[in-house]
Design a binder for these strands. Structure first.
Lengths: 132, 132, 132, 132
DNA sequence: GTGGTCTAGACCACG
DNA sequence: GTGGTCTAGACCACC
């Protein structure tokens, strides 16, 4: 699992980390019991302050998605799969919905909108394969 | 033109106002020369502090989208159409792109993704008709 | 770099801060990469509201003069030198020009005008040495 | 006497009108007893709201520079000359002083500064002759 | 009535 | 500690 932060996203780095873990668990790329990078490793990988990485893990633990075992590491919680599934569905629905709303408000026709979506899907699928 | 702020959006109220003006101009719902609500009126309508409304207008003026005439009101700039067209295309591309990325990362199949988009398009189109 | 606001100036406090940074960078007193006072520190020094200081920095960032790194501080942008050089030349030309116009309109002879300028130059040079 | 407002000046239109009258009286271009344009005439000439013109005259009257004779017109006060002389000297000193300070802060050498002043003087003198 | 700017104090997220 | 944004309320000048 590789983490990457987009500084231009409206979501803060901490939230992006939480999102990425959530989506990875929901999609099965991260299975319950799997080990996540250490706080320091995550911080180094995502080019983020260790404090931010630690806070993100803390929030995920609070949400029941991960379990932190002091002195050992951070692991995907056994019940993490279910939690992430519903959470991620809600997030995707909400964000895609908002983006579509904007596109319609901006005057895109259904055809144009679908073109944009298609291109994005192709781009994302390629990226996704690479990482899988 | 009606303004509405979604407190759950990751974009701040000020940014949402800027977005809504930009999209409305790009789609032609607001034509160059059209008068926008007053700072105070917009604030009342969007349930936002007048200061926030003023700042949003100021940024839009800086971007060449609107023109503020002190003591008179705020108007869509003559060249606002062109500016918004490119600006809004970029925004839509970027945000739809991001949302699709997330959906793919969350494990949605192309079919599921298109279903979500379709539903969102229908919902948004209805909303949009009502306001038009 | 010390900041000071003249409440009798026709320029607003926020504009005065922007001017002072611009001139300092243009003259080389502030080099690209140099760290500027924090928003709160500047506010305390200039006896101004932190909000006003933050706005001034934001405008300067928008103009490409400074770079603000959230959670870290505000720095003179690498390309700030060039931007300020032309910006400051324009400002000086415009404002000296306006002041001279007024002096001529007020009926000062060229000789009187030059006397006033000479005295001002001497005063300002002394002040300037002190701060350098 | 012709009035002209510079919208890019940091001084508000109302202040610019007051300044222009003050300087014209101080320089002798307007003698005590001379008649000034009517409020409406001034407003039309300076492309300013009649309210603004009226307010400027009111302030000048309050300062003892002009006298308004209801139903007749606005005239330069008999003692206006003396009042304007000292007032205008103070204004010129202050504004030229400020502009020179800025130029020095911007890093102009004495030579460069004098060049800018010389050019401005020549420009202003030409303008001034035309209007005289 | 209009916009423009300032002060004052709050909350958030990052370092 | 840092910057970013918001709310709240004030004053100014112009229309």
């Amino acid at each position: 699992m590789r983490f990457e932060i987009d500084p231009r996203s409206p979501r803060s780095p901490g939230e992006q980390i939480q999102d990425q873990v959530t989506f990875a668990v929901a999609s099965g790329r991260l299975a319950p019991g799997a080990r996540l990078p250490s706080v320091r490793g995550l911080a180094a990988q995502a080019l983020v302050n260790p404090n931010t990485a630690a806070r993100a893990y803390r929030e995920l633990e609070h949400a029941g998605v991960v379990e932190s075992r002091p002195g050992d590491g951070v692991y995907v919680a056994q019940r993490g799969g279910a939690r992430c599934a519903s959470l991620s569905a809600k997030l995707v629905e909400e964000r895609l919905g908002r983006a579509v709303e904007e596109a319609v408000a901006a005057g895109l026709s259904e055809r144009e909108l679908r073109d944009v979506v298609d291109r994005a899907v192709r781009r994302a699928s390629k990226e996704h394969e690479v990482r899988t």
